[in-house]
Nucleic acid binder design. Structure first.
Lengths: 339, 339
DNA sequence: GTGAAAGCGCTAACAA
DNA sequence: TTGTTAGCGCTTTCAC
C-alpha cells in the first residue's frame, strides 16, 4: 500500500559486500572477529541499503524475544502506573521491551491474558502486578520466568519471585496510629475479597484494633474496588449507616479510594479530619496533596517496580532462580492531616 | 534451567495425528476446510501435547506481529495513562498488543525509541502520543503506519494520521472566560517550546487577551514541563515577581501542572480563587477534585485514545490511508471553581 | 481434502 | 578469518 519499500535482508547486504551472510551476522552480533577490511565493507553496504536486522527472525532463531509481558489491573491508577514506569525504566536498560495489558480488575480477563502469554509465547517473561488469580492458577503450567508484584508469596515449585510489602503489618501500624489519636469507632473500606492484600490489610487493621479492646461491633467493614468512584460510593454508604456521635475514623485500603471517600464526606458537608478521620494506603505521589495531605502507609512503588525489574532480569539470566523467592520491602506510616 | 519442558511444535502434532503439518496449520488458521475426522484427531493431538502455535514463527512467516508500539512521554501522567488505556482497550479487541515506551519527556529518548521501532521491526504500526521530534523526523524514513496523537497535523507524504484537538481555540476559550471574570493581569505557565501544542495554547491565550485590549506587559509567560513539580516551581517563581494588587489569573497549560501551581499558591498562604485564579488544561479525571474543582479545558483523552486505536487499525487494514489525514476532536470549557 | 516442500530472515555449527 | 548450510516453527503454493 502506497510507498512502502521492501526491507533489505542480511542476504542483500552479504551480496553487496561480497561476503557470506555468516560474516554479516558476525559483525552485527559482534560474536566473532571479522577483519577490519570486511567489516568496513559490510558496514558500508548496510548503510547503503538502509539495512536493519529483522528482530522477529532473530527471535525465532535464538528463541528469545527481549520482550516482557506486564499485566496490570489498570494503568490509569497512579499506584500501578508508578510501578509500571519503574519496571519499564529498569528493563529498558537491559534492552527489554514491555508489553502492557490491563485486566481492568477482572480476574477472568487477567487469566485470559495470562494464558495467552504463557501459551502463545512472544515474551520471555512475565510480570504480574497485583494479580487476582488463584495460587493454583499461578502455580499451573507456565514455562515463563515470572515475578509477582504486590501480592504475598506462597509455596510454589515454579520460577516465581515475589516482590511485596507486608500489608498485614502496614495496616496494623495504621490501626495503632488511629488508636493513638483517640478514635472510638472505626470503619474499613476494604478492597475486594479476591485480592489477598486487601484481606491482609483488613485483618491487620481489625486484629490490632480488637487486641486493643475495640468491640467487633465498632468496626464496620465494607468492600469495594480500588478506585476513586468506588471509594466515594462506599463512604456515602457508610455515612448513611453511621451516626457520627462518636469520634470515628475510616481506613480506606488504597489512597485513590480514600480520595474518593474524602470527597464523599465533603459532599455530605463533613470536614476531614474534624468530623471524620480518613486514612489511606499506598502513599501515591498525589497523596501529599489530597485534602492537604493524606495520612497513609507508604507502599514503595518505585522500589517495587525497580525490584521487580531486577528480579525478572535475574531470572532471565538464570540467577535468583529459587522457586518462590520473596523480596519483602519495608513500608512505613506517613502521618499527614486527614486523621 | 530447572523444570522447563520443551514446547510441542506443529510437527509433533502432525506426527501424532498422522497428518501433514499443512493440515494442522489449516485447522489452526481455519483457512481451509479440513474433514471433521481429521480435525478431531488433530485437535485431540494438540490437547494431548499442550500445543500452542509459536507466535514468533508465525510472525516471521506472515510478516505481521500484531503488536503496536506506543511512545508516551510519561505513563505516570494521568493525561497520558488515560489515552494509553483507551488505545489498549481498542486495539485489544482486534487482537493487537501494545508495546509501551516512556520517553520521559526527552526528545532524544523519543527519537531513539522511534528509530528502534521503525528500523528493527517487531511492530506493525506506531502510535506517538504528544511527540516532540521535528516534522522532518516524523516525515522521515519510516515504513510503519503511524498515528500521532495530541499534536497538530502537518503536511506529509507518509501514512500518518493525526488525532488532536485545536489547542489554539481551546486556549482562547479560556482567555475569554477569564476576561468575563474581570481579571486584569494574567500569567501563562506554558509548556515547553518544543511542544507544538504548548505553543498553540500560549498563543491562543495571548492573542485573545490582546485582542481584548490587554497590554502585553500584563501577560507574563513562564515555561515549564507538564508535571506537578514543575507547575509548583513555576507558580512559586511567578508569585515572587508579581504583586497581587490587581486581580490576576494564571493559565497553566496542563491540569497536572495547574495542580502543582495551586499547591504552590497554598504554600504561600494564598487562596484560590480568592487571591489568585488558576485555570488548567486537559480536564483529567481528577480535575473535578483539585481545589474543589479545577476550571479547565476538556481535552477528550478517552475519545483521543479510542480514535487513535481505530485509526491505527484502519491504517493496518489499508483503510484511511490518506497521507496526513487529520481527525480533529472538539474541546470545551469546563467551568468549575478555581477561577 | 490432503500432503510435500519451499522459504520467511536470521544464527551457529561445522568445514575450509 | 570466512563460507556453507541446516534449521528455528510456521504458512502456503502447488501437486495429487
Amino acid at each position: 500500500v502506497g510507498g512502502y519499500f521492501l526491507r533489505a535482508t542480511i542476504r542483500d547486504v552479504a551480496k553487496l559486500a561480497n561476503v557470506s551472510t555468516a560474516t554479516v551476522s558476525n559483525v552485527i552480533t559482534e560474536s566473532k572477529f571479522v577483519s577490519d577490511e570486511l567489516r568496513a565493507k559490510i558496514l558500508e553496504s548496510m548503510r547503503i541499503l538502509g539495512y536493519e536486522p529483522n528482530i522477529v527472525a532473530r527471535s525465532l532463531k535464538i528463541n528469545k524475544t527481549f520482550r516482557i509481558g506486564v499485566i496490570v489491573p489498570d494503568i490509569t491508577n497512579p499506584f500501578f502506573s508508578e510501578i509500571v514506569k519503574q519496571i519499564e525504566t529498569t528493563i529498558d536498560a537491559a534492552k527489554y521491551q514491555l508489553i502492557l495489558c490491563n485486566s481492568d480488575y477482572q480476574v477472568e480477563t487477567e487469566v485470559k491474558i495470562y494464558n495467552s502469554f504463557i501459551m502463545g509465547g512472544g515474551v520471555d517473561a512475565l510480570i504480574l502486578v497485583a494479580p487476582r488469580m488463584t495460587e493454583q492458577q499461578l502455580d499451573g503450567d507456565s514455562r515463563l520466568p515470572t515475578v509477582v508484584v504486590d501480592r504475598p508469596a506462597f509455596k510454589t515449585s515454579k520460577e516465581i519471585v515475589f516482590v511485596y510489602t507486608d500489608n498485614y503489618v502496614g495496616a496494623s501500624m495504621m490501626a495503632s496510629h488511629l488508636l493513638s489519636k483517640d478514635y472510638l469507632r472505626f470503619a474499613c473500606i476494604a478492597g475486594p475479597e479476591s485480592v489477598p492484600n486487601a484481606n491482609m490489610r483488613f485483618t491487620g487493621f481489625r486484629d490490632r484494633l480488637m487486641q486493643a479492646g475495640v468491640e467487633k461491633d465498632d468496626i464496620k467493614v465494607i468492600r469495594c474496588e480500588f478506585s476513586f468512584d468506588e471509594g466515594y460510593k462506599a463512604m456515602t454508604e457508610i455515612l448513611e449507616d453511621f451516626n457520627l456521635t462518636e469520634r470515628t475514623a475510616v481506613f480506606v485500603s488504597s489512597d485513590i479510594a480514600a480520595w474518593g471517600a474524602i470527597e464523599a464526606a465533603h459532599a455530605k458537608g463533613l470536614e476531614v479530619p474534624k468530623d471524620i478521620g480518613v486514612a489511606g494506603y499506598d502513599n501515591i505521589y498525589f497523596a501529599n496533596f489530597i485534602n492537604q495531605g493524606l495520612t497513609t502507609i507508604e507502599n514503595p512503588t518505585k522500589l517495587m517496580g525497580e525490584q521487580a525489574g531486577h528480579a525478572i532480569l535475574d531470572l532471565l539470566n538464570g540467577k535468583g532462580a529459587v522457586p518462590g523467592h520473596a523480596i519483602i520491602l519495608d513500608s512505613s506510616l506517613i502521618v499527614r492531616k486527614t486523621v
